[in-house]
Design a protein around this nucleic acid. Structure first.
Lengths: 349, 349
DNA sequence: GTTTCAATTTATAACGTTATAAATGCGCAA
DNA sequence: TTGCGCATTTATAACGTTATAAATTGAAAC
């Protein structure tokens, strides 16, 4: 044996395989653990020279603070939780959101935890759980309702969050929303400009805030132009694609079928197009279509139809940034973003 | 003042707002913190009566163990990390994977952390980082290569993981893979059965293991039937859709164009269909197409083409289960799953 | 009445970090 | 010399949990 006692506490071990801690740095520099901690934290009371030295050593040995210890001590989790709705698993919505969020969290100590809430559980549960057990420093969710219970609860407990979509609550809160009024208004005007006379629209479920925005945009354009319209009943953007398809197929066989559809999502647009095709109608030609696009998918769909682009990845990025600002204590009223639609109309033939 | 000293440690506080800890239960039951901990852990040395009592109290006050404290003490993170490749953001691949994973992690203490590795970072970095700093108890990743460096590294350190796709390494390791040989073989046979004489295929990038499986399946069917074939060069399944589209468009205008395409992904299939349409050719009619489908999307695409279904959500579910088993110490050779393709051929017209 | 043993419970320490309060050293004025 | 103030560093305790070893019971054996 070459000098080391096998028991007892090891002193100034040069063990390169062990995970470096503050203690490692303290031993290497001859400073106290506390000093090292404060030096890395950039406390001005620590001599500049000491701070530099500590940082250099930390860098050299690849020190990374232990998340669990920090979390236990400070109560900060360095976690952002995305509460995913089962319905959001349509065509990359959540993927884009996640991409944006992780981009915003890049080069921060924050990790993104994805927590789906399963169908049978009421929507409030995961939020309550995260708050009560301090599972995260901030929450992200979507599918916001005008008087959203989650927003109320989070505001009440002053827990940082951002939601995708606005509310009609009095208190301001952070949000990122897409200007669905403009989307529907511009989409409808486009159909009217194309000479369509009887317009139809597939709306989101009534309970969501953006139901109203889309309906209002549609109605505004329709009323301004004085064209006939109808609202799809019994089927909405959350309905199974097959149901939307069946509805449109049936409607296209009845008297006075619509000659233009506004579709608030890619899946619904494809369902409408499939139904029309199956009736022998050419989408975009016999029946006008304007679809909301959230991916590059529609560039590949034939026949090409008019689309309006909603950038979900950007929404995720913005939500991430707003949430970090909210955690940092910024005023909610400064943390509100409305995304503009990007019109993507095909050239007239 | 009514009896309570303002300083010092509080005793047996009945504070219902404070987060309950083991100490809370200990005070409520009159037991020691250690006993409570072991009782909740189900240690057989604790009297059954005590165990039941402790569990009941814990239930009543809604006790939940502090993750940070557990992690600090035990070194177990209760975290599974999904390392996402930037390329995987296509059409819900990762969303489905995440859905399956979260389903597998449901009712376990595990959380899912999503960590993308950004384009410029070499693929090995995030894995090394997670292992070295014990950021998770297990890792999930995809896009596996025959001699995958990540697999080597993880095996070497005996760190639990599951990957989507097989390797050609000697040591067995957990994986979930789709039977891409059968996919390509059946797809090609379908085209041949439809009378196609000159087949083409868009392959994955060469570095992935499933490149070989798909190519081998295609070649087997082609050779058996003795039909002419060509392999698309310069463009692969990871190429931008526009590039695939441009390639097929160009090729369709040259002599002896293919009359059948095997497409290993939804986006590539749509790109092929768009290119053919733009040449005035009817996909599925003038030119045969068999596409790999990973969502319900193709049910809505017109004209309808033959597809073969790969269930990504199920892959995620299986991967989650295998990973939990791997963490539990099960043998890697028992943790290997090969998913069967589900043929989804449209009825002949 | 002591001893022995098993069953059950408990005290102690530690994981790595940071907030708090205390200590150290040094220059300088009294 | 003593004492004060300043800059800098340090010891101590605590976050909530669990592994380890020790202590406490009661009953059975001698």
């Amino acid at each position: 044996m070459d000098g080391g006692e096998r028991g007892g506490k090891r002193e100034a071990s040069e063990d390169t395989t062990a995970k470096p801690t503050l203690r490692t740095i303290a031993e290497l520099t001859g400073l106290a653990v506390t000093t090292v901690s404060r030096a890395l934290g950039g406390a001005p009371q620590i001599a500049l020279e000491t701070r530099q030295k500590v940082r250099q050593v930390a860098e050299e040995i690849g020190y990374l603070p232990d998340r669990a210890a920090q979390r236990l001590r400070t109560g900060r989790t360095n976690v952002i939780t995305l509460v995913l709705d089962p319905h959001e698993e349509i065509l990359g919505f959540s993927t884009s959101l996640i991409r944006g969020l992780t981009e915003a969290l890049r080069d921060t100590p924050y990790h993104l935890v994805v927590t789906p809430h399963f169908a049978n559980v009421p929507s409030l549960d995961p939020v309550r759980h995260i708050m009560r057990n301090k599972m995260a420093d901030g929450i992200v969710f979507s599918r916001t309702e005008p008087f959203d219970e989650r927003v109320k609860l989070l505001l009440e407990h002053e827990f940082p969050f951002v939601c995708h979509g606005r509310t009609e609550l009095g208190a301001p809160h952070p949000y990122v929303d897409f200007d669905n009024f403009s989307f529907a208004y511009e989409a409808t005007k486009r159909l009217i400009a194309g000479g369509r006379k009887r317009l139809s629209i597939i709306l989101p479920p009534r309970r969501f805030t953006f139901f109203q925005h889309i309906q209002y945009g549609f109605m505004s354009a329709v009323r301004e132009a004085g064209v006939t319209f109808e609202l799809v009943e019994g089927v909405d953007l959350d309905s199974p694609a097959a149901d939307i398809q069946a509805y449109v197929f049936r409607r296209a066989g009845e008297p006075n079928p619509p000659d233009g559809y506004v579709c608030g999502g890619e899946v619904s647009a494809l369902a409408v197009m499939a139904a029309l095709s199956d009736r022998g109608l050419r989408p975009g030609d016999d029946v006008g279509i304007v679809a909301k696009q959230t991916s590059g998918l529609f560039d590949l769909i034939r026949p090409q139809v008019d689309t309006i682009y909603e950038d979900i990845a950007d929404a995720g990025l913005q939500m991430g940034r707003l949430l970090l600002a909210a955690i940092g204590g910024r005023e909610p009223s400064e943390l509100q973003i409305l995304q503009k639609p990007k019109l993507n109309f095909i050239a007239a033939t």
